[in-house]
Design a protein around this nucleic acid. Structure first.
Lengths: 161, 161
DNA sequence: GGCTAATTATAAGGACCCTAACTACATTGG
DNA sequence: CCAATGTAGTTAGGGTCCTTATAATTAGCC
């Protein structure tokens, strides 16, 4: 098995990059690495249900919504383009997990509705993912998770400026 | 501009997922979201130099190595398959940023060598990325970054088990 | 009626990754 | 020595996810 360890900057980082911050770079590298591992784990977990991370998010959003949503709204929540949502909905519709319907009043719009089968699949894979999330982060105490969340929120703020 | 905020679980998470841990789920969601933002920022930053995140990593690895590396070694460091490295090296070679050479003794192997132009490009985009990493994380103090790194390392440990 | 804005869909493409199969070569054990 | 096995790199084929640009439709407003 691959022996994966936290990413480190070079020893001579400081002299190579006078304007840099070795800690900031290490944070970036490890943020990316940990996310990649996490995403891979999730992908492997839900693959048996024929769901991918992105389409799983769409299902999840629809499952929790009060009713059908327009692709537009889904795109906003996923922070992707509407064209991307079109493709994701296409693939979900092929698998009969969602269904497109006409908007009752605005005929430009489409409403995406989760099907009964979509609900069933979502209600299976999502608890599974959540249980694994719990296990993956079992090494952190509740207060450490609180700290991590607060730090991530601050990093995010710096990234969207 | 999109108003991106930290991801939150539903209010009724606890009753929906009795076996779950809302904090763990929020950590996962935000880890992925922050990484995605970070990767997007980096990609936009290096795009003018005609470098993508993955090929930039290959260049970076070669730039810091003592000499040429075998694709095998690059794949190990990137944690991707050899086939992926073949493609990345192909694209870098097309742009004259790296060059393939025969291994002196083992004729199964190839050595990938960064070119002078590759060094120049790397020496331009990498300091730029590092300065931005510093700015993106400027909202965190040194000790907070230390904390974040420690927490990420622990999360990683939970992910590779 | 006519203009502008909004919405979805389509087309074309790029970045990134994988597995499986294949070739060439090296190594090992009889 | 040589047959079997292992290793390195590539190729072929595929999949996911995302983009921009464009088209077609409709809404909303003057």
């Amino acid at each position: 098995m691959a022996n994966i360890t936290p990413a480190r900057v070079a020893d001579n980082y400081a002299e190579l990059y006078p304007g840099g911050d070795a800690q900031a770079t290490e944070c970036s590298m490890n943020l990316l690495q940990v996310s990649d591992l996490l995403l891979g784990n999730v992908a492997g977990l839900i693959k048996p249900y024929d769901v991918t991370p992105a389409s799983g998010l769409v299902l999840s959003i629809l499952r929790d919504a009060d009713g059908p949503l327009a692709p537009n709204q889904i795109a906003e929540r996923l922070i992707v383009s509407r064209a991307t949502v079109t493709g994701l909905v296409d693939s979900l519709e092929r698998r009969k997990l969602v269904k497109r319907r006409a908007h009752p009043t605005d005929r430009r719009m489409v409403l995406v509705e989760i099907t009964e089968r979509g609900r069933e699949v979502t209600d299976i894979f999502r608890p599974l993912v959540h249980r694994h999330e719990r296990d993956w982060l079992a090494g952190l105490t509740a207060s450490e998770k609180t700290t991590l969340l607060a730090l991530l929120a601050r990093v995010q703020a710096g990234l969207v400026e």
